[in-house]
Design a binder for these strands. Structure first.
Lengths: 324, 324
DNA sequence: TTGTACGCGTTATCAA
DNA sequence: TTGATAACGCGTACAA
């Protein structure tokens, strides 16, 4: 590998001169600078990131930590993050799995954006204590080095539940999410709150884990118990799609016997016929805001926690209860 | 930050002893080793990746370069890559955009898996010339440091075209992909070859770019020209879905007037009603094989280029031509 | 076990 | 003002 030492030798100057020239410092004559750059190009020089990092103590890389690589809305979220960071010369890398957590303490990255329930609060706080900067998208953590950008789950779940009530349903099913999921818990809590306010409303919780197959399972039970048109609130769209699938294969029809509403408005949901009613929010904005907040805490600015607003997307998957 | 120097001081030993102890070398007494580890834990020591990399000249990180973060089959592909690399102690990072290309020459990563037409052949060959190890999934490049793991596009497109012919269609539309896409070109070429072999078959090319919207545009033209049931070969599923959308909103019906077959078998295609006929292949295996090949070339083993096999997934989106 | 050279770029200090 | 010397960051591995 060719290093600045090689360039210095060939140019007959010291390595520091080479370093200054490469970094466009004004400490070197334009002439010398040009000559050095020419030699660098000729020798096909590329800097060594490890050496630079060792001295500068920053990498200009931000790590995004996801539970897995296949989430249906990660694309837009990451796009938002990337756009937010690009402008400041930061690079994004996407990581998954516990092994990759080492990037933070080992200083391979200047900061982290976390959307992964498998990353424990305790570990995050430890990292933050050591001075690492983190933005979390899936929990509440109070620490000067941590900022939160959270979905307004409460508003979303409230919209969904009230939509079902408005349409005349009084017996609802709620297909829940994983125990460990912050979003799932917040959503469930909000649904409970709405239901508690309406005296004649009842709801049945069915355990789910945000996966399509857990939605399918939930649907089996719902179909077995079927007596009258009922509404199913799925705490995310993937489970809603699972419910969809199973109902589709039964004698019952969606939007007539079984009424469904989801959460997240993933791309797929727009393709369901009848269209899946769901809760929408801008994944792109979520990412962009996370990036912005992270850059701010890295640069030492004080920041407020942020919230992403949500809206109801109506769909034919849930329609007026004709015999309420 | 606490470094091995701090540990050495506290333990009253030299830094080299600390290094050996931390790396589990047999050159240190078990007792000393234990003491050092205890102190390391107490001081909350974490190694510095930059320093280690500088010396060892490897990072144990593999970079995957994608055009963007939102491809509909990236999830499974990345899962396959990750599983292939995990076992060998390698970490995966996912990168997108030209800026991130620097990771390779700057030695932030030990190797790259590339599925991004925006990464030019020239640049890849340059990196390979400098000794960097690369597996490409979307082009043919001959270089000792580069290996290919390619889809069998020819077989896939041939299957699709023959399926349409078998069902009695003699006038086909082909919605093409981006000029720069290797896969798109191979697929188109294979379709041409099949059509050329059948004397009474004709086909019309409609330019597409693998995006849903280009499929929608293609469909507009197809609908305008509609005279009799016709088959549309889309060189990927996203465009097929675009065609689907537009046809759905017209007076024509899919699988009756307009018959569609796609390529890739993305998750979404299973949800279309009628089901989209398409060409399937294992994205997971594709990734796993890419990982395996990369590890082999990194370790200096000779490797053969690999190919991923494909199968036809029938669907009601293309049915027997009843008046051939 | 330990001293120390090394990997490579950055930057403060000092000399011309 | 221009450029050279040298310390530094941190872990590794060889020689002693």
């Amino acid at each position: 590998m060719v290093s600045i030492k090689d360039i210095a030798k060939k140019a007959g100057v010291s390595i520091s001169t080479v370093s200054y020239a490469l970094n466009g410092s004004s400490k070197v004559t334009d002439e010398t600078c040009a000559r050095i750059l020419a030699i660098a190009k000729e020798l096909d020089y590329t800097p060594n990131a490890a050496a630079r990092t060792l001295k500068k103590r920053q990498t200009k890389i931000i790590g995004v930590f996801l539970t897995d690589f296949s989430g249906p809305f990660y694309g837009l979220l990451l796009q938002g993050i990337k756009e937010g960071l690009d402008r400041q010369g930061y690079e994004v890398i996407v990581c998954s799995g516990e092994q990759s957590h080492r990037f933070l303490p080992e200083r391979m990255i200047d900061g982290a954006i976390v959307l992964d329930a498998a990353f424990s609060d305790k570990e995050l706080l430890q990292h933050a204590d050591r001075g690492h900067k983190i933005v979390v998208l899936d929990r509440e953590l109070v620490h000067p080095n941590i900022n939160q950008v959270l979905l307004d789950n409460k508003a979303g779940a409230t919209l969904a539940a009230e939509h079902a009530l408005d349409l005349g349903y009084r017996k609802l099913y709620v297909v829940t999410g994983p125990q460990a999921s912050y979003d799932a818990n917040k959503r469930l809590q909000a649904v409970k709150q709405v239901m508690d306010r309406v005296p004649d409303a009842e709801y049945t919780e069915i355990e789910g884990n945000f996966s399509k197959s857990s939605g399918e399972k939930a649907a089996e039970r719902i179909l077995q118990e079927y007596r009258e048109p009922s509404a199913v609130l799925c705490l995310n769209d993937e489970m809603a799609i699972g419910v969809y699938n199973t109902v589709m294969q039964s004698e019952y029809r969606i939007g007539e016997h079984i009424h469904i509403i989801g959460f997240d408005n993933i791309e797929l949901s727009a393709y369901m016929t009848p269209r899946l009613a769901t809760i929408d929010y801008s994944k792109h904005k979520w990412g962009a805001l996370a990036a912005e907040q992270l850059l701010k805490i890295i640069s030492g600015e004080a920041v407020e926690n942020e919230r992403i607003y949500v809206t109801l997307v109506p769909g034919e998957s849930i329609q007026l209860n004709e015999r309420p």
